[in-house]
C-alpha cells in the first residue's frame, strides 16, 4: 500500500510567494505618492479628461511606478539584504526569485507605457518610459552606489508623476507642470537625509554613499537646512502661479514655517543631543515631510476643484 500523505512537510512551502509578495515588489507605499501626485497633475491641468480615461491614466502611471520599484528591488537585492529597513522585502527574504522580479518589472513597464500611450497620448507615455529608465538605470544602477548626490538627482524620478498626469490631460508640458515637478524634486533630499540621520548604520553597512557616510552627519544637517530654505521659496512662490491660490498660499505658509523650524532644529543639534533623545527632532521632521508633500498637492487639488466652480486661484 502506498503511504500517501499530503500533510507531510513540503520543502519551501513556507517561503513560497503569495500574491501579496508580488504586490510588495511594486512598493505600494511609494505608489500612493505616485498615484496622488499624478492625480493632482491630471486634475489641475486646464483640460477635461473623461473620468474613465483619467482613472486608467492614473492606474497605468501607478503600474509603471510599481514596475520600476520591482526592477529596483531586483538590482538592489544584495544591499536590501544587509539593511534592517529592507531586509524583509520579498527578494532578500527568499519569497520571490530575483529573475521573477526582473520579469515582472519588465513586463509591467512595457504594459504601462504602451497602454498609457493608447489611453491618453504618447508624450505622457514617453515621460513615463523616461521616468522608469531614470529610476532604474540612472538612479538604481548608476548613481545610488557611486555618488552622495544619489538622492538629489535620483529624486527626479519620483517627481515626474504630476508632470505625466498633466501631460496625459493636456498633451503638453507647461510651467505649472514643471513647478509641480520641482516641488517633489526639492522635497526629496531633506526627506531622505532626515531618514539617513536616524537610520544610522543601515547605509554604512550596505556601503551606499549617502551624504551621512561620505560627508559626515554635520554636513548632512547643513544640507537639510539649505535645501529646505530653497524648497520653501519654491513652494510659496508656486502660490502665485496658475495652480496656486489663497488656499494653497495659506497651506504653504503654515507648512513651510513648520518645515523651516524643523530643519533649523536639526541644524542646531549635534550627534550627542540627537542620540540622547533617540533622534526625536529628525524623526519628527521626517514625519512632517510626508504631511508636507501631501498637503501641498492636496491644496493644489482644492484650488483645481474650486476653479471648476469659479472660485479657485487669484481671479
Amino acid at each position: 500500500m502506498t503511504d500517501l500523505s499530503t500533510n507531510a512537510k513540503v520543502p519551501g512551502a513556507e517561503t513560497e510567494a503569495q500574491f501579496g509578495d508580488y504586490f510588495a515588489l511594486l512598493k505600494p507605499r511609494v505608489m500612493t505618492l505616485v498615484v496622488f501626485t499624478a492625480f493632482v497633475g491630471l486634475l489641475a491641468a486646464p483640460a477635461s479628461v473623461h473620468p474613465f480615461v483619467g482613472f486608467c491614466a492614473i492606474l497605468f502611471i501607478a503600474v509603471g511606478g510599481g514596475a520600476s520599484g520591482a526592477l529596483n528591488m531586483w538590482w538592489d537585492a544584495d544591499i536590501d539584504a544587509v539593511m534592517r529597513r529592507t531586509a524583509r522585502r520579498p527578494i532578500p527574504s527568499g519569497r520571490v526569485e530575483g529573475g521573477e522580479a526582473l520579469a515582472i518589472g519588465l513586463v509591467l513597464s512595457a504594459f504601462a507605457v504602451v497602454f498609457l500611450g493608447l489611453a491618453t497620448n504618447w508624450l505622457a507615455a514617453g515621460l513615463l518610459a523616461f521616468t522608469i529608465f531614470f529610476y532604474v538605470v540612472i538612479y538604481t544602477m548608476w548613481l545610488k552606489r557611486t555618488t552622495p548626490q544619489n538622492i538629489v538627482i535620483g529624486g527626479a524620478a519620483g517627481a515626474f508623476p504630476p508632470m505625466i498626469g498633466w501631460a496625459a490631460a493636456t498633451g503638453s508640458v507647461s510651467v505649472e507642470a514643471v513647478l509641480m515637478f520641482c516641488l517633489t524634486f526639492m522635497w526629496t533630499p531633506p526627506h531622505f537625509w532626515a531618514l539617513a540621520l536616524f537610520m544610522r548604520g543601515d547605509y554604512d553597512a550596505a556601503k551606499v554613499p549617502m551624504l551621512t557616510v561620505t560627508h559626515g552627519r554635520r554636513s548632512t544637517r547643513v544640507h537639510i537646512l539649505v535645501y529646505t530654505v530653497l524648497l520653501a521659496a519654491l513652494a510659496v512662490g508656486t502660490a502665485f502661479t496658475a495652480v496656486g491660490g489663497p488656499v494653497y498660499l495659506a497651506t504653504a505658509l503654515v507648512l513651510n514655517a513648520l518645515f523651516l523650524k524643523g530643519a533649523w532644529d536639526i541644524f542646531r543639534r549635534d550627534e550627542a543631543a540627537s542620540e540622547a533623545d533617540n533622534y526625536k527632532a529628525e524623526k519628527a521632521f521626517f514625519k512632517l515631510s510626508l504631511l508636507y508633500l501631501f498637503a501641498h498637492f492636496g491644496a493644489i487639488l482644492v484650488e483645481a476643484g474650486l476653479a471648476r466652480f469659479g472660485f479657485g486661484g487669484w481671479a
Binding site: 503511504d3 500517501l4 500523505s5 499530503t6 500533510n7 513540503v10 512551502a13 513560497e16 510567494a17 503569495q18 500574491f19 508580488y22
Partner: peptide, 17 residues
Amino acid sequence: MSIARLHDLHKRRMGRN
C-alpha cells in the same frame, strides 16, 4: 495515515491564482 485534500501549500497557491 491521513489524506487531506488541502495542504497549506494549496491554500497559498489558491490565493495567488
